[in-house]
């Protein structure tokens, strides 16, 4: 199973096992990674699973979809590499993926 790393705003790293076919958000929630709230449970309707994808991984995580752009529009700290982790489906190619988290999820 691919391993992915979530890095909190304060620098604490959490490396967890992700399940192929599930979302990156679920990898965080299922492993109790703090800082991914996922209030809507993966419906792309709340922007509380916001992450920053490390630049070298952007090619493998794809680009934001339309609903994601609309929700990220209101996040507190949006960057060009902002994604909603519920919209990234884990594949074998994601082994080693690193994402950073914002200061808070809104």
């Amino acid at each position: 199973m691919p391993h992915v790393t979530f890095i909190e705003h304060n620098g604490t790293a959490h490396t967890v096992e992700a399940v192929i076919g599930k979302s990156l958000m679920e990898a965080a929630v299922d492993n109790s990674v703090p800082g991914i709230d996922a209030d809507c449970g993966g419906a792309c309707a709340c922007a509380t699973c916001h992450v920053f994808v490390a630049p070298e991984w952007e090619a493998k995580t794809g680009t934001r979809n339309e609903a994601e752009v609309a929700m990220l529009n209101f996040a507190a700290e949006v960057k060009p590499n902002s994604r909603l982790s519920c919209q990234i489906e884990i594949t074998a190619a994601h082994d080693g993926l690193v994402v950073h988290m914002p200061d808070g999820q809104h």
């Binding site: 709230d37 209030d39 809507c40 309707a45 709340c46 922007a47 509380t48 929700m71 529009n73 209101f74």
Partner: peptide, 12 residues
């Protein structure tokens, strides 16, 4: 945290 009280979508 999975509740509807804040609404969902762009008007959350």
């Amino acid at each position: 945290r999975q509740h509807l009280s804040f609404g969902f979508g762009i008007h959350r």
